[in-house]
Amino acid sequence: MSQILHIDWTKCDGRGLCTELLPTVLGRDDWGYPLAKYARGGDRTNVEIGPRDAQAARDAVSLCPKLALSLAPQ
């Protein structure tokens, strides 16, 4: 079952932990902020996470230094 990783841009500071944990899902833009590699329906704020990345996504949520990430079922 896939999940949705929501990025709260008002909290995100582009520290780059999530992009290391989810290298196939997220890249970084010029200023360090996470950039969804495949934006479903152009939505780059709610990023789809496949089963293979579920654990990494949970780690990203818990390790984000700004608490800017949250996971929700699709």
Partner: peptide, 12 residues
């Protein structure tokens, strides 16, 4: 100036 891509992207 809350969201990085807007705060840095628009001036760029």
């Amino acid at each position: 100036k809350q969201c990085g891509p807007c705060m840095f992207g628009l001036p760029a």
